[in-house]
Write a protein that binds this DNA or RNA. Structure first.
Length: 803
RNA sequence: GCCGGUGUGGCGGAACUGGCAGACGCCCGGGACUUAAAAUCCUGUGAGGGGCGACCCUCGUACCGGUUCGAUUCCGGUCACCGGCACCA
C-alpha cells in the first residue's frame, strides 16, 4: 500500500479533534508548560508559508513536552482588528466584521490542515466584544491610575492611512504598514505612560531568558542615559534647562541650542532683533516631514539661527554665551535644549565650525582644532577650574555634586522611549470607553456598561479632517455623562491594533470567563508563559507593549508574575525560491495549501523545519521539499506492515538509536530542528542497512511524532502499539550504549592528518601510539626520524611530532 | 556613523569546549529493476594533480596576519552582505 497522506492526515485530524487530544486542563497535580506563538492577523490572503515555521517549531516543542509528561497549554487565536481588513471592507463595501469572520474561518481551516496540537476550545478573537470588554477594562484601569492621559502634541500622521501612528510604527520616516509619507501634526491624543515603566522594562530584562538580540534591541529602544540636568540663566530672566551626559564638559559650553519648537522661542520673540529670520527658520523646520528629517540627517549640514537679543550665562565660567535654534536639537528628547560643547561633541563641533563659534578644549587627549574629542576613558580635564586633572568619570561626579550643592542642577536620567500614542482615527478597533462631558471632563464608561461595542453601520468612510469615522455616527456619539447625567459625547478615537495583543496570552488561561479577564486560579497555574516564539519585528512593538501591560496588571494585583514571558526565541523569514522576499509582485509566493495538496502536511512541517537554521532567513526550495517527502516514503515502506517480535532494540541498531534519542532530544530544546531531522534521516538510513526490529520502529515513531504527527500516528496504529504515538512517553537514552567497542581515531604527523587507525574504546595514550606506529603508512613516514613528542586526545586523535 | 549578526562545495546547510571540514538533504553522474519511462533500490560526488590499479600528493571554511603540535572555531586587521537604531545631547 502506498503512503496515502491525504487520507491519513484527515483521519488523524478528525480523531484528535473528536477526542480533544490536546485540550489543556487545569490540573494542579501535573507540572504545566505554556507554549506560545504570536497569534496571526487573519488577512484576506490566507495563511502565508512563513506562518508554519514558528508554529511548527512550537508545536514540536509542545508535543514533546506532552510526551515528557507535562500538562501543556498551546493555544491559538486571532488578532483581528486592523487596517487591512478595514480597508478591504471599505473598498468592497462589506462590513469589516463579516470580512473578519470569513478570514478567521479560512485561517482556522488552514491551521487545522497542518495538524497543530492547538487547544481549539480556547480560541480568542480580539474583535469579539466578550474579549475586548477586558481590553477596555484594562484601559480604564490605566486611566484610573493616571497612566492613560490625553495630550495635544505633534504626532506621526500617515497621509495615506489618514491615521496617527505610534513612534514604533514609523520606520525610516514612512508608515510601517503602507510605506507612505508620515508628517507631523499637532493633535489631541490618548497616550499611555509607558515611560513610567522604562526602568523596570529595562532592568527586568536581565532575569529573562530572551535571546540576546531581543534584549539588546529593547535596551536600545528604551535608550536610558544618565547624566545631569543643568540650569542656565538667561538675559531674558528665564532659566534654560538642559540635559547632558557630560556635565564634566560644562566649562567648554560656548553656546546653547534650543529646538525650533521650544516654548521659549515664542516667549522671547518680542525681545529678538532678528525675529523675522527666527520665525522663518521655525516655519521651515515645522514643514519638514519626518521623512525629510531622517533622510537628510545622514551627513546633513547643520543649519540654525542665532537668537539675537537673548543670551545665556554659563554657570561654571559665568560668561555670557549665544543661544541658537537648530533642528539638530529635538524637541522630544531631554528638555528640548542643549548646552553645546564643540570641543567634545561631534555635532556641536560641526555647528561651531560653520558658525565660527569658539571651540574650547576642556578634556585633553585629542586635537579639538581638527575634530571633537569624545573619548571618555583616557581624557584628562583641563581649562575647567576645580575639575582640572580629573578623569572624565571623576569629573562627572564632581561636577554633578557641585551643581547640586549650588542649586544649579542635579543628576538626571533620560530615555529615548516616548509615551505610547494610543489613539487611532479609524473604525475597526476597540472604542476607547471614555465620555467627554463639558462639565466633568473625561469620564470613564462605568465598568458594568462594558463592553462598549462598536456601533454597527452599513456604510462609513474615513475622513480627511483627521477625525475618526465614529465621529459621524451621531446616535452613538451623543450620550449622557455617567457622572452628572448631562449631555456629553463619546470619545470617537479607537485603540491601536496593539491593544488586543497586549494581554491575549492571559485570556488563553481562562478564555470563557465573563466575570474577570481570567480567574486568579488559572493565572496562577498557567502563568508565566514558559516559551514564547515570535518575529523580531515585534521586539520594540508588541513584545515591549505587552510587557508594559503585564507589569501594570501586576501592580494592580490582577496577575501574579512580574513578567509575562520566561523565554523568548525568534525565527528567520522564509524567502522565495529566488532568494527574494516573497511578494505577489515578484510572483514568488508559495501557498501552503498547494504544498499540502501535493506533498502533505507532514512533508511541509518536516521541510519547513529542515530548511535551515531556525533563526536565520532561508530560501524556499521545492526540490528539497521532495527530499522530505522521500524520507517519509522511506519510513512508510519500513513500517507499513506489522513487525512482530519483542519491543526491544536490535543489536545492530542499538548504538545509533541511543545516539539519535540524545541528539533529537537536545536539538529540539535548542531549536536545531534541521539537525534533529538530519539525525532521524541517518537513523532511517541505518534501518535500510539493518532491518529494524519492532522496538526499533517504535522508537523511530516516537521521535518522529512531534515532527510528522499524522504518519507517525498511522504507522503506530498499524504496528498495534498502545494508545497514540503523541501520548507515548518520550524515549530515553542510555549513554553507556552510545559507544562502539572499537573506534577510529585520527593519526596526525606534525599536525597533518595522515591516516586513521582503529583502537578499542577509551584506549590509553600508549595503546593509541602503538596502534599508530603499527600502521604501514605511519611506519614509513616516521622511519629514521626521532619522535619528539606525541599529543593525544582520548578517543579522538594522536599527533606525532617528529624531527 | 553606532549597535548586533553572518560569510564553509553547484545549492540549503553540518561540525561538541581548539582535534578526521563538508553530517543530512537537494542537484548531478554511474548501475540494478523495467519493453520503456516514472517511482524505488544500490553507488559516486570539494578543487587540482599523479598512477593501469587497490591508491597517492597538493590546495581548500570571505581576505591578510598572529597564537598553537593542531584554527571553520581563539586574537588583531581588512572587505562584503543582512538586521536594528540613527542629529538621543
Amino acid at each position: 500500500m502506498k503512503y496515502d497522506f491525504r487520507r491519513i492526515e484527515k483521519k488523524w485530524q478528525k480523531r484528535w479533534e473528536e477526542e480533544k487530544t490536546f485540550a489543556a486542563t487545569l490540573d494542579e497535580s501535573k507540572k504545566k508548560f505554556y507554549a506560545l506563538i504570536e497569534f496571526p492577523y487573519p488577512s484576506g490572503e490566507g495563511l502565508h508559508v512563513g506562518h508554519p515555521r514558528p508554529y511548527t517549531a512550537m508545536d514540536i516543542i509542545a508535543r514533546k513536552r506532552r510526551m515528557e509528561g507535562y500538562n501543556v497549554l498551546f493555544p491559538i487565536g486571532f488578532d483581528a482588528f486592523g487596517l487591512p481588513t478595514e480597508n478591504y471592507a471599505l473598498k468592497n463595501k462589506v462590513h469589516p466584521a463579516a470580512v473578519t469572520k470569513k478570514n478567521i474561518a479560512r485561517f482556522t481551516e488552514q491551521l487545522k490542515m497542518l495538524g497543530y496540537s492547538f487547544d481549539w476550545d480556547r480560541v480568542v478573537d480580539t474583535t469579539d466584544p466578550a474579549y475586548y470588554k477586558w481590553t477596555q477594562w484594562i484601559f480604564l484601569k490605566m486611566f484610573e491610575k493616571g497612566l492613560a492621559y490625553k495630550a495635544s502634541m505633534p504626532v506621526n500622521w500617515c497621509t495615506s492611512c489618514k491615521c496617527v501612528l505610534a513612534n514604533e510604527e514609523v520606520v525610516g520616516g514612512v508608515c510601517e504598514r503602507c510605506g507612505s509619507e508620515v508628517v507631523r501634526r499637532e493633535k489631541s491624543q490618548w497616550m499611555l505612560k509607558i515611560t513610567e515603566y522604562a526602568d523596570r522594562l529595562l532592568d527586568d530584562l536581565d532575569e529573562l531568558d530572551f535571546i540576546e538580540r531581543v534584549k539588546t534591541q529593547q535596551r536600545n529602544w528604551i535608550g536610558r542615559s544618565t547624566g545631569a540636568e543643568i540650569v542656565f540663566d538667561t538675559t531674558a530672566g528665564d532659566k534654560l534647562r538642559v540635559f547632558s551626559t557630560r556635565p564634566d564638559t560644562l566649562f567648554g559650553a560656548t553656546y546653547m541650542v534650543v529646538a525650533p519648537e521650544h516654548e521659549y522661542v515664542t516667549k522671547w520673540m518680542p525681545l529678538l532683533e532678528n525675529a523675522e529670520e527666527v520665525e522663518a527658520y521655525r516655519a521651515a523646520a515645522a514643514r519638514k516631514s519626518d521623512f525629510e528629517r531622517t533622510e537628510l540627517s545622514k551627513d546633513r549640514e547643520k543649519t540654525g539661527v542665532e537668537l539675537k537679543g537673548v543670551r545665556a550665562v554659563n554657570p561654571a565660567t559665568k560668561q555670557e554665551i549665544p543661544i541658537f535654534i537648530s533642528d539638530y536639537v529635538l524637541a522630544s528628547y531631554g528638555t528640548g535644549a542643549i548646552m553645546a560643547v564643540p570641543g567634545h561633541d561631534t555635532r556641536d563641533w560641526e555647528f561651531a565650525k560653520k558658525f565660527g563659534l569658539p571651540i574650547v578644549e576642556v578634556v585633553s587627549g585629542g586635537d579639538v582644532t581638527k575634530e571633537a574629542y569624545t573619548d571618555c576613558e583616557n581624557g584628562v580635564l583641563v581649562n575647567s577650574g576645580f575639575l582640572n586633572g580629573m578623569s572624565v568619570p571623576d569629573a562627572i561626579k564632581a561636577m554633578t555634586q557641585w551643581l547640586t550643592e549650588n542649586n544649579l542642577g542635579r543628576e538626571a536620567v533620560n530615555y529615548k522611549l516616548r509615551d505610547w500614542v494610543f489613539s487611532r482615527q479609524r473604525y475597526w478597533g476597540e472604542p476607547i470607553p471614555i465620555v467627554i462631558c463639558p462639565k466633568c471632563g473625561y469620564v470613564p464608561v462605568p465598568e458594568d456598561q462594558l463592553p462598549l461595542e462598536l456601533p454597527y453601520v452599513e456604510y462609513y468612510e474615513t475622513t480627511d479632517t483627521g477625525e475618526s469615522p465614529l465621529a459621524a455616527m451621531t446616535d452613538w456619539v451623543e450620550t449622557t455623562c455617567p457622572k452628572c447625567g448631562g449631555q456629553a459625547r463619546r470619545e470617537t478615537d479607537i485603540m491601536p491594533q496593539w491593544a488586543g495583543s497586549s494581554w491575549y496570552f492571559l485570556r488563553y488561561t481562562d478564555p470563557h470567563n465573563d466575570r474577570e479577564l481570567a480567574s486568579r486560579k488559572a493565572l496562577e497555574y498557567w502563568m508565566p508563559v514558559d516559551w514564547y516564539n515570535g518575529g523580531m519585528e515585534h521586539t520594540t512593538l508588541h513584545l515591549l507593549y505587552s510587557r508594559f501591560w503585564h507589569k501594570f496588571l501586576y501592580d494592580i494585583g490582577v496577575v501574579n508574575t512580574k513578567e509575562p514571558y520566561l523565554k523568548r526565541t525568534s525565527h528567520g523569514m522564509i524567502l522565495g525560491e529566488d532568494g527574494q522576499k516573497m511578494s505577489k509582485s515578484r510572483g514568488n509566493v508559495i501557498n501552503p495549501n498547494d504544498v499540502v495538496n501535493e506533498f502533505g502536511a507532514d512533508t511541509l512541517r518536516l521541510y519547513i523545519m529542515f530548511i535551515g537554521d531556525f533563526e536565520k532567513t532561508a530560501p524556499w526550495s521545492t526540490n528539497a521539499v521532495k527530499g522530505c517527502k522521500r524520507f517519509l516514503d522511506r519510513i512508510w515502506n519500513l513500517a507499513e506492515k506489522p513487525i512482530s517480535g519483542p519491543e526491544t532494540y536490535s543489536a545492530a541498531n542499538e548504538v545509533i538509536i541511543h545516539r539519535t534519542i540524545k541528539k533529537v532530544t537536545e536539538d529540539i530544546e535548542s531549536m536545531k530542528f534541521n539537525t534533529a531531522i538530519a539525525q532521524l534521516m541517518t537513523l532511517v538510513n541505518a534501518f535500510y542497512d539493518s532491518p529494524p526490529s519492532r522496538g526499533d520502529i517504535k522508537v523511530l515513531l516516537e521521535l518522529l511524532s512531534p515532527f510528522a504527527p499524522h504518519i507517525a500516528e498511522e504507522l503506530w496504529e498499524i504496528q498495534g502499539f498502545k494508545g497514540m504515538a503523541c501520548q507515548a512517553p518520550w524515549p530515553e537514552y542510555d549513554a553507556s550504549k552510545m559507544v562502539e567497542e572499537m573506534r577510529e581515531i585520527a593519526v596526525q604527523v606534525g599536525g597533518k592528518l595522515k591516516t586513521t587507525v582503529t583502537v578499542r574504546n577509551d584506549a590509553s595514550d600508549d595503546e593509541m601510539l602503538q596502534a599508530a606506529l603499527a600502521d604501514e603508512k605511519i611506519k614509513k613516514i616516521v622511519e629514521g626520524k626521532e619522535i619528539v613528542r606525541t599529543i593525544t586526545v582520548k578517543n579522538k586523535l594522536i599527533n606525532i611530532i617528529v624531527r
